[in-house]
Nucleic acid binder design. Structure first.
Ligand SMILES: NC(=O)c1ccc[n+]([C@@H]2O[C@H](COP(=O)([O-])OP(=O)(O)OC[C@H]3O[C@@H](n4cnc5c(N)ncnc54)[C@H](O)[C@@H]3O)[C@@H](O)[C@H]2O)c1
Ligand SMILES: NC(=O)c1ccc[n+]([C@@H]2O[C@H](COP(=O)([O-])OP(=O)(O)OC[C@H]3O[C@@H](n4cnc5c(N)ncnc54)[C@H](O)[C@@H]3O)[C@@H](O)[C@H]2O)c1
Lengths: 214, 214
DNA sequence: AAATAACCGTGATTCTTTTCACGTGAGATA
DNA sequence: TATCTCACGTGAAAAGAATCACGGTTATTT
């Protein structure tokens, strides 16, 4: 399968979600400009993204919603459910566990890890919690390749290392700290502190634009 | 003050955080390549970013850590503490509330809103919870311009509208749904579903790269 | 059946962001 | 003091992403 740019992948994920709600509302087909409007982008870009995954519409009815969803799914998803590990079951970890429990058909959290001995062995939201030392065998046993990392800052780098060694190839990192891992591990950072600082900055720009300051 | 690209702003936020830990470890100065290594970028880019905010180092000792932190802070932060609102105090909202309570000197959540009458009037993590109808007066009264949005999908667009009307100029949105707001409101999406799909995709790429499939 | 209109597919273009690479200057070395 | 080294500052080149714009196709209208 061809490879697409990260930006395109992000947008495809978005398109699919919006297409699903459109489908739920009974819509059978969409135009590129409809999709564009939904994601606040341009029609040309939508068409380009869809072209990347070799997806054709026709000129009078646009794209068939079902087709599109299937095409995007074939591109983004693996054929079977992808097992995911969660590391760190604190406030955020628990929220995430519950959130992903329901929201995704193809991504399933199948194991959680925590170094708190209180938690080891317990079942949280239907997931057995393992100690960190059990990671290699559990990860290998369940063929886990993707992990969500929600441990405190100081512990993130180390946990990432352990995950890498256990065979994980993609980490969604919530700790506000860049991870050092080998080139065969993809890391995506969800840095909320950064995000909030950014909106605060931009809000201030907007504000002073309004209030006179040229 | 000059305007910088969003990417630059993101990196500045990251630099500052890493500089603070370096400072905590007693380091007095850094070279551009040190910073670059920390953020997994290039030295040239670090220098360019710092140039943007008019920040000079000298050739033998690099950049002074204290100076840099101050320069970035002057650029990113407002002079006084920026008051922030949180809308939606569910699982995620509570975690965020607790998280930001401690972690940031210049951004402070000063009010939370929820439409659950159970929560109205209660104090959660030191924050008074208001009903949605009280938003206009509270936001105006506390001069809030930035909000964190953590309500369920169906409610996000509406809440965003209310925030906009109340005077908010920047929204950090956790609902997996693009918001339609006017051009004077900056929106930053924290779309975890998208992020997880993305790492899963990339992990799969990495995996098949390793296992033969050219 | 010809004309019209709307929208897709995509080469070419423009705009943005990143990287290169080299002149400069400050301290170390001899 | 002269030279050497190393990192900064930055114009120029390269790479990457978004937009433009137009030919082609398909349904509808006259
Ligand atoms: N809470 C939030 O809303 C929020 C927001 C943004 C970022 N974060 C980040 O997410 C991470 C987790 O936040 P949280 O609020 O859930 O923290 P938390 O303290 O509530 O939970 C951390 C969990 O990790 C476990 N843990 C600690 N050290 C560990 C280790 N070495 N190995 C394995 N597990 C370990 C703890 O037992 C605990 O269960 C932190 O890095 C935090 O900065 C949290
Ligand atoms: N929980 C997670 O880890 C997680 C992860 C990613 C994204 N999200 C998103 O964040 C949002 C919140 O998630 P959550 O898990 O905290 O949900 P939740 O159901 O636990 O909390 C939602 C809160 O919003 C309040 N609310 C509902 N309708 C409202 C309205 N119209 N106006 C004001 N408040 C209203 C509810 O009373 C509740 O307190 C959702 O959009 C979810 O998709 C959550």
């Amino acid at each position: 399968m061809k490879i697409a740019s990260e930006k395109t992948i992000e947008r495809l994920s978005l398109y699919r979600r919006l297409l699903r709600v459109a489908k739920g509302a009974g819509q059978m087909s969409v135009y590129s400009h409809d999709l564009a409007e939904m994601v606040r982008g341009t029609a040309a870009q939508v068409r380009r993204d869809l072209m990347e995954i070799g997806c054709a519409g026709n000129s009078k009815k646009g794209y068939d919603v079902d087709n599109l969803i299937d095409a995007i799914s074939e591109f983004l998803d693996s054929d079977d459910v992808t097992p995911v590990a969660l590391v760190g079951v604190g406030n955020l970890g628990r929220a995430l566990l519950q959130f992903f429990e329901s929201h995704h058909p193809k991504l399933k959290i199948v194991a959680v890890f925590d170094n708190d001995p209180e938690k080891s062995g317990r079942v949280i939201h239907g997931c057995r919690c393992y100690g960190m030392s059990e990671m290699p065998v559990v990860v290998a046993g369940k063929k886990i390749t993707v992990a969500v990392l929600a441990v405190p800052v100081g512990a993130a780098q180390n946990a990432a290392k352990q995950l890498e060694e256990a065979g994980v190839r993609g980490i969604l990192n919530f700790a506000p700290e860049p991870l050092r891992v080998g080139p065969s591990v993809a890391v995506e950072n969800m840095d909320m502190t950064m995000a909030l600082e950014k909106v605060a900055y931009m809000a201030r720009q907007n504000n002073s634009k309004e209030n006179g300051a040229k």
